[in-house]
Structures are given as structure tokens and as C-alpha cells.
Amino acid sequence: MKGIRESLFSRAGATAVMLLCTLYFLVPIWWLLVGASKSRSQFSSTEPLWFADFHLGDNLSELFAYRDGVFLRWMGNSILYTGGAALLGTILAAMCGYALAKYRFPGREALFNLVLGGVLVPATALALPLFLIFSQLNATNTFWSVFLPSLVNPFGVYLARIYATASVPDELLEAARLDGSGEVRTFFTISAKLMFPALVTIFLFHFVAVWNNFLLPLIMLGNERLFPVTLGLYSWNTQVNQIPELRMLVIVGALISILPLIVAFLFLQRFWRSGLGAGSVK
């Protein structure tokens, strides 16, 4: 009897904590959604956490039309910078981590330790010297000045090595060699498939890291039309005091800017779960 009461108590307590945390995590986003759906005049005059007249369509068309549609351009830039860098960066990291896991060669451990040291080097410490190097090449304020440095993901190499060791058996590679398959072809047709759930994890981590990167574009880019959406929203937000009508656009823009990642999470969640739990399958 005592046990049952105790477990009921535990259940209620645990559920209460979870619900409270759900409120904490979701209310700000709910506020953003509700706020983005209101007209300017109702934004500050109506209940902040509930809808008034639905004005989202007008807000969106104003956002997309503002200054020749610069916001859509920013969204496109972000998707190019982030999607491109994460996709290419994941393939490069996977190949390097795979080679470190599956081949013995002189200097292997030294190379691995160098890459691991790279994980501890904060990306922001690189932004300034990268700017100086690119400015010597007259290449600052270009797409490439942000895109190329974003390709490098040492943590991805580290993860790829661990996952390749765990999920690609040596016997399989031996068998492929006996069948006459080249090393590179074996990687793309067999090994990469076995590593796929892990690669999704690496891709997502890389995607979020580049999507969040702020200092590099802030230092590198002067031309507003090259901005990623984070830098664009930041630049609007700094002007809110001079141009108050920008505030509404910042709120609607903030809502739109988080949608692609939420969609990516929902879409990749299935793979990601199996990737993270890779060690749990015996």
C-alpha cells in the first residue's frame, strides 16, 4: 500500500516537473507566434499570449517586400551557407574519420590528435585571423569567405572515426577487396551506408553550428545582400530605436527564421535517434 502511494506521488511529481519545463521552453515561442500574427497597433494593446485579429498574412507580405525582399535573400543565403557547408563538410569529415578508423598509416595518431585539438579551439578565435587572411587576398565580403571556413568540422571527424570503428567491420572490407572493389568505391557503396545514421547526427550538429555562427559573418561581411538571416535580423534589431516599425518585422522574421530548423529536426528525427543510440544496439 505504501509502495503504491509512493509511486503515485513520484508519478505526479515527475509529470508536474515535465509540464512546468514544457511551459518554460515553449511559452517564448508561443509568444513569438502570437505576436507575429498581430497588427502593429494590436501588438502592444492586446493580451500578449493570445491571438487578436489575424494579421500574419499582411505581416508576411510586408516582411517579404521590405527593401526589395532582402529578408528572403537572407533566408536563401542561410540555407546555402548552412545546407551546403553541412552537406559537404559531413562528407569530408566522414571520409577523413573513416580513413583514421580503418587504415593504419604512419602519423595516424598524430593527425587524429591534431584534429582533436581543433575541437577545443574555439571557432570565434579563428574569425579575426581568417578576416585578416581573406583581406590580404581581397576576398572578404564574399560568399566564399563565410562558406569555405564553415566546411571544416573537426568534431565531425572525431565522431565519424568512432562510428566507423563501431559500425564497419574489417571482414566486410576484406571481402570487398577480394571481390575486386576499389577502396573508394567500397567507402561510398558499403561503408557510408553502414555509417548513415551517424552521418545524419554529424550533419545535424554541423548544420546547427553553422546556422548559429554569428561572429564570422559579422566580421567578414559588409554587403547586406550576402548576410545570413541571423546577421540580417541582428542588423534590423540594432536599428529598432531609429526605425520603430522594424520591430514588427524583426518579430515576424525571427519566427520565420526558426522554421527551417524545426522542419529539419522533425524530418531527421527518426534517423537521428537511431544514430545517437548506435551504441545501444548489441
Binding site: L26, P28, N212, F214, T230, L233, A254, I258
Partner: peptide, 22 residues
């Protein structure tokens, strides 16, 4: 719950700071 707790991670640091600033 897992998804609800994870959603804020989709919000870039800059955007989260702007939102909380408001």
C-alpha cells in the same frame, strides 16, 4: 516532451537573444 524540450535548440543564439530581449 523530448521534442518540446529540444525545440529551443532550433532557435539561433542571436534570434533567441532578440526574442528574450523583447
Amino acid at each position: 516532451f523530448r521534442l518540446a524540450f529540444f525545440v529551443p535548440y532550433a532557435v539561433p543564439g542571436v534570434v533567441a537573444a532578440i526574442m528574450w530581449g523583447f
